Amino acid sequence: METIIHVWPTPDSRSHAKLHCGHTTMAAVIGKNGTTDQKREGDMATPTGQFTLRKVYYRADRTHPPVTTLPVEALTPHDGWCDDPASPQYNQHITLPDAARHEVLWREDDLYNLVVVIGYNDAPALPGFGSAIFMHLQRPDCTPTEGCVALTEQDLRAVLRSGATSIAIHAAEN
């Protein structure tokens, strides 16, 4: 049976949400501009819909691998994610250096010490419709993401342990 986690924006903030995993509710942070069903590159919004959780990356120099049924891979300083709509590698893992605009996965901060690739706009990727949508760690001050879903490390590890294979991101209720 497929395990689906659900993300619901909270009514009092565009960038805060509740993530439901089984019988547990966790505080989550989403995009600065809330959720959207019209996701575009750089809009600072989290896409709505149901998506497969593809893979987990982690910083082996900072943390241990999670317990999960998903594929797991340790990050290296050469890991990146292409967010350049003009590149044929748009919304894909890439090896750095790369000339296309990209995000570095080996970050100085702790956000990607544990990061889950959400299967958004990847089958195939449509240029400009959004890239690098992940579940990753929250900033200590819980500031908004650029479109990802962020959790505490404890909560993200619990989600991965649950056997979740999909995420449903819902629109804000009016």
Rank of each mutant, 00 (worst) to 15 (best):
P47L: 07
V56M: 02
P47R: 03
R40G: 01
D37E: 14
N33E: 14
K55G: 06
Q50P: 02
P47N: 08
A60C: 09
G31W: 03
D37S: 15
T36C: 11
Y57M: 14
Q50G: 13
R54W: 04
V29N: 01
F51K: 01
Q50N: 07
T35C: 10
T36I: 08
G31M: 09
V29C: 10
K39M: 02
R62T: 05
D61A: 14
Q38D: 14
Q38K: 07
V29D: 12
P47E: 05
T48W: 00
G49H: 00
K32Y: 13
E41G: 07
L53F: 06
T52E: 15
P47S: 08
I30Q: 11
V56W: 01
G31T: 09
R59H: 14
T63E: 02
A45E: 13
H64E: 14
A60W: 05
D61N: 10
M44E: 09
A60F: 11
Q38C: 12
A60E: 12
F51M: 05
N33S: 11
G42I: 03
T48I: 03
E41P: 05
D61Q: 08
L53T: 08
I30D: 13
N33K: 05
D43Q: 10
Y57F: 15
H64I: 09
K55N: 11
T36V: 06
I30A: 14
G34V: 12
R62Y: 04
P65C: 05
T35L: 06
G31C: 14
K32D: 12
D37Y: 04
R59E: 13
G34M: 03
Y58D: 09
G42L: 11
G34T: 06
T48E: 02
H64P: 00
V67H: 07
F51S: 06
A60G: 14
K55W: 12
R40E: 06
V29I: 13
A45C: 15
A45P: 07
L53H: 04
T52M: 08
D37R: 08
P65Q: 02
G49C: 01
G31L: 11
V56H: 01
K32H: 10
K39L: 04
P47Q: 04
M44Y: 03
T36E: 10
T63G: 10
G34Q: 05
Y58F: 15
V29H: 00
V56K: 01
R40F: 01
T46C: 13
L53D: 09
